[in-house]
Computed example of a mutant assay.
Amino acid sequence: MSPAQPVHPVHIVWDWNGTLLDDLSVMVDAVSACQEAIGEPAVDAATYRQQHCLPGRAFHDRLCGRPVTEAEWPTITQTFAEHMAARHPPLRAGAARLLEWVSAQGHTQSLLSLTADARLRREVAQLHLDIFFQRIDGRHAPATPKSEALQSQLAALGEPDRRRVVLIGDTTDDAEAARACGVRAVLHTGGFETLEKLRTAGAPVVDSLTAAAQLAVDRSPRTSQRSSPLGVGLGHDTHRHR
């Protein structure tokens, strides 16, 4: 069956870590290992979510309560890379079916992450998700801002109408990147930052990826209860926390 053709198709830019991946516990373990490698205490999930920020060095500065030294930073980056290389990417339950639903409605999708590009592509292929994305873009240079990465991806996509582009993510940084590029953002609460922090981002905040995808495509007159993604297993709570 060919995809439906909505009157107003949207393009969804998906975040990876904390969004399509349900990897908070994996990231907490990795960051804790980095902290311990430089003689600092491990962190728990609550601390991670409360203190999370980008770039990564600023995050570790916060966790340490002091600036990370030039001698410590290479230890942190190496330890983190080793943990990421060894992980099996934990796809969020129902995410593959949600990507399939978005495509079936005639919308387009891409993936944008600050994960190293080679690792990102390897993980996406491992999970057999590459068929859903027009582009997959990871980080090519250290400390690349998400806004710069988003600008580059939109240019590579042929500059789609930015009024029809929506970034779905889990952090205030995602919302800031979307705003800098003139596109919409929808944030969900199941990732790396707390609800209280997400509420400061100036973007809609919802409780699940299902609700985020539904909100992203709401501008299409073809969107209806009959074509709702709410049965794909990502939760049925569509309450908005804006």
Rank of each mutant, 00 (worst) to 15 (best):
P6T: 13
T144W: 01
I168T: 01
L150M: 14
G233M: 10
V28E: 05
L195F: 06
D44W: 10
L63A: 07
Q214E: 14
A177L: 06
V28N: 01
T210P: 00
V28K: 05
E148K: 13
H52E: 02
A42G: 07
S113F: 00
L167R: 05
A30S: 14
V206Q: 01
V43A: 05
A203P: 00
P55N: 02
R87A: 05
A216N: 05
L157S: 08
A143I: 01
V232L: 14
G18H: 03
R162F: 02
P67S: 09
T223K: 12
A33V: 12
L234A: 13
L54G: 02
S25E: 15
Y48R: 03
P3C: 13
L111E: 04
F80R: 06
T194Y: 09
V205Y: 00
T189D: 11
S224G: 08
P142C: 02
R92D: 08
P9Y: 15
H60K: 06
H128R: 15
G231F: 09
G169V: 09
R219E: 14
A156E: 15
Q35I: 07
Q225F: 08
V183I: 12
V26T: 14
A201F: 03
R222H: 12
T79I: 06
P204G: 11
Q35P: 14
T115S: 09
T238P: 11
D117G: 01
S228P: 01
R122F: 09
T171C: 03
H188D: 03
T223C: 12
N17C: 12
